[in-house]
Design a binder for these strands. Structure first.
Lengths: 331, 331
DNA sequence: GTGAAAGCGCTAACAC
DNA sequence: GTGTTAGCGCTTTCAC
């Protein structure tokens, strides 16, 4: 910020007052302004290569034109896509985006919330680690910082997330339609609303079809957890298919099946959730459900920008793949 | 930024002047200050829940205490790790990080450079898309914004990147040591210094060993490109091993080999570069080279913070895997 | 050891 | 249509 030329320099060079320059800069009264004056100012701006100092604008306007994004892990593809979504709408509106990575730590999360408060962001797209500190959030909203929760639900806060229940229900219904009957479910951690929703969708579809789950076990959203729990299930019961709460677990389940000499999809159908792009490298291709992370980011950002308080649940997309291609597809 | 309480409110409540509060806030003259005064101020800050307004600090101090990160794609794991590295050092120093995603577009890249200039960031960690606009960079440095190029080399600019040449040389030497002789190389695009360096390392190792590459073909850093070019190579020549310029291409090559009925590693050794974590889901596990993206980000950020102009080349790590386990390992 | 005063660069009433 | 003026909230000489 060794900025040399200020708006006053531009004004002096153009032979006008700073306010006139400011008006040109902000497109105000553009109509009521003498075109030649405007031209001259624009030329001077270009000539001097003048760039307004955002800090001064923010201080004076008393709003920052900045959005915060607070996520658990930017190196997780899902969150980075969500971030890009927020950033894309922010950028087109001339807003800055402050990306903060809580690293799955609640301490860091609180620190960043404080930080975003002092930055004075106009709003925050927040993907909390577990249950967020509602008092802290309250402090922010009291000070005029809008907060939108993305990707998970938190009572009392506006949320933009995916229809995990519906997506999971559709997926289970799809497998039932293919003729699978003894279906086991690898659920995610119960503190995460996403995991709960997917499980609920699965249960709903099974109930509707008059079926009982062959097994429901809880694990973490990891490859290893998927592998381990799949082994357990396959040791205990003869199952038709395994549906995992995310792709990583599903791939773990595929490996577990292979290691036990079961062929996928001939001996066991497997399905996941998330549609991570590199799952396409797994063969056969994984049957899964796409979650619109980018769109969630965009919608959350848009709400922050236009002041809407509506929650939104975005539809997911079923992605059929070879891992569930065994039976009477053609009936 | 509907901030209510300012430093003057705190001062009034504590019965001191704003300057004294400011001194406490900035840890200045902490020794020369009457402890009880300091106590009182601290208590008032807590009581009123006062948070300084960064915009005002920045305007007054004439520096932003903010760093910019400009990368081609935040949803690429490599860049997101690099970003985390920058952010981690920035955060511990009380600096904000502005993450900008050029989406591999030079227009957007220029726009963001302008944007970062108006934000007045103190420095930028820059991963350019192809050859950057040096005039633009010059404009920034003229205005006191330091720029450090990360992950690739640009003449005349301070760089922090990985030792791609050395890593690639070591990898090739490793395969040669295992007894592979007819080694083909799948190179990346030649505009990218990273791709060139890896190819150069490969060539160097082959030359040192008195070997000639079985083939060298250029492609893109994608799965499909790896697959297609591997097919071409395997059709034309009997090769021992394929080394790809990155993991994605290597996995493509593995699939191509499998589709042609070749077993990996028994009929063909395959190696990659990058060590993407999900490559561990591929079996056998990929032989590859780890590039320290996080450390690169940290070092680049650190240079920005401490004003150092030294370039740095960080060592890579060879990750042996089952895809090159064929021969006389025990010799 | 603490206060008074000036000003960072900009915008928005309010004049004219 | 354009200029004048008064701050936004903070830091930092310079007094005392």
């Amino acid at each position: 910020m060794e900025q040399r030329i200020s708006i006053r320099d531009v004004a002096a060079h153009a032979g006008v007052s700073p306010s006139t320059v400011s008006r040109v800069l902000n497109g105000q009264d553009a109509d009521h302004m003498r075109p030649e004056t405007k031209e001259r100012i624009l030329a001077t701006i270009k000539e001097l290569d003048y760039t307004p100092v955002r800090a001064a604008q923010r201080l004076r306007r008393r709003k920052t034109q900045a959005l915060g994004v607070l996520i658990p892990d930017i190196s997780n593809l899902y969150f980075s896509l969500l971030t890009r979504g927020v950033e894309s709408v922010a950028f087109t509106e001339g807003f800055s985006t402050l990306v903060c990575d809580s690293n799955h730590e609640t301490d860091r999360e609180s620190a960043y919330l404080d930080f975003l408060l002092s930055e004075g962001v106009d709003g925050i797209v927040f993907v909390p680690v577990g249950r967020p500190d509602l008092d802290l959030v309250q402090r922010l909203t009291d000070r005029g910082v809008r907060v939108i929760v993305a990707d998970r639900r938190v009572d009392g806060l506006t949320t933009v997330d995916a229809d995990n229940v519906g997506g999971s229900r559709d997926l289970a219904a799809y497998l039932l339609g293919l003729g699978y009957r003894e279906i086991a479910y690898l659920a995610g951690p119960e503190e995460v609303s996403t995991a709960e929703d997917r499980l609920a969708g699965f249960r709903g579809a099974m109930k509707t079809a008059g079926q009982t789950p062959a097994a429901v076990v809880r694990g973490q959203f990891t490859f290893q957890s998927g592998y381990d729990h799949a082994v357990t299930i396959l040791e205990r019961r003869a199952v038709d298919a395994i549906i995992a709460a995310n792709d990583l677990m599903a791939i773990g389940a595929i490996r577990a099946a292979e290691d036990r000499g079961l062929a996928v999809p001939d001996d066991l159908g497997v399905a996941g959730f998330d549609h991570v792009p590199w799952a396409a490298l797994v063969r056969p291709q994984l049957t899964t459900v796409e979650v619109p992370a980018y769109a969630i980011g965009q919608e959350a950002g848009r709400r922050l920008l236009d002041g809407s308080e509506d929650s939104l649940r975005l539809p997911t997309t079923l992605i059929p793949g070879g891992t569930c291609a065994r039976r009477r597809r053609t009936k």
